[in-house]
Amino acid sequence: MKIHNSTSEDIPEIFRLYALATEYQKTIFPENTWPTFERTLVENEIQQHRQFKMVVDGQIACIWAITFHDPQIWEARDKDPSIYIHRITTNPEFRGRQFVSEIVNWAKHYAKSHQKKFIRMDTCGNNEKLIQHYKKCGFNFLGMVQLQCADELPSHYQDADVCLFEIKLNSA
């Protein structure tokens, strides 16, 4: 298993995995599924080296994106030096391999090397199974919030309850 930045050549596979994830979401938590994301969103993340892929046996097994600021979701806490993980998507051929735990390990090193004190993540809706999964992967569940302003966020955030998760890193 290796982690790399995604490239523009990965875009078709990224969108294929997003589509498969959305279909899967419809079967397990239909109240809140991902919209179709804008291609420019992914292109910008790739250009800014914020879109990542986990490769196993030459195949993209998992993808995710990060950002260093997320003010509409994290509001005042956005001032904390953090990385924010978004859109973790696992290739169905690789489900069940605990990739979120692998991403957490990667994120701890990545965050420390960029002088960040928190790893943060969110998910829409009260999906208890997903909340428990993220807690098992080391995140503290901070609770659910109703976003005050989501006009710059993808459509699935509009009028959604959002679960907040974080890992506070040791300063060492």
Rank of each mutant, 00 (worst) to 15 (best):
F99V: 00
P35K: 15
D70T: 00
Y157A: 15
I11G: 06
T67H: 10
I85R: 03
E43Q: 08
S155W: 09
R95L: 11
I131D: 01
I167C: 15
I14P: 01
D122R: 02
K135Y: 00
T123I: 08
N105D: 11
K112G: 10
K79G: 10
S82K: 06
A76I: 00
Q146H: 07
H86N: 09
Q59G: 05
N127I: 00
P154F: 11
D122W: 02
S82Q: 09
P81H: 09
F52W: 08
W74M: 08
M1A: 10
T7C: 02
L153K: 07
N5D: 06
T22M: 12
Q51P: 01
K129I: 14
S113C: 08
P35H: 12
K53I: 13
R97Q: 13
C137Y: 02
H86K: 02
E9R: 14
W74H: 11
S101P: 00
Q51N: 08
I103L: 04
L130P: 01
R95W: 09
W64L: 03
C149S: 10
H109C: 12
K26D: 01
L142W: 14
Y24C: 14
A61H: 01
F52R: 06
N32A: 15
Q146T: 15
K26E: 09
S8W: 00
N5F: 11
N44I: 13
I85M: 11
D57Q: 06
T27P: 08
Q148K: 15
A61S: 03
R95F: 10
L142Y: 14
E38A: 14
T123N: 03
I103P: 00
E9F: 06
I119G: 04
L130E: 03
Y110S: 03
Q47M: 04
C62I: 02
I167E: 13
Q148M: 12
L130I: 06
G125T: 02
K136P: 02
C149T: 05
L153V: 03
I14C: 10
N5M: 05
W106K: 10
H133R: 14
S171K: 13
P92C: 09
E166P: 08
G138N: 03
K26M: 06
R95D: 02
Q25F: 11
T33F: 11
N170G: 04
A107W: 03
G58E: 03
E152N: 11
Y18D: 11
P154S: 05
F37V: 08
E128W: 06
R77H: 05
T123K: 00
N140G: 03
T89L: 13
P154C: 05
F68T: 11
I119N: 07
D161E: 15
F94E: 05
H156R: 08
K112S: 14
F15I: 07
E75Q: 12
H109P: 07
G96A: 07
P71K: 09
K2N: 09
K26Q: 08
C137P: 12
M1T: 07
R97Y: 05
K112D: 11
V145D: 03
T40I: 09
N127V: 00
A61F: 00
A76H: 04
E166T: 12
K168R: 14
Q51G: 04
S6N: 10
P30G: 02
I167A: 08
N127A: 01
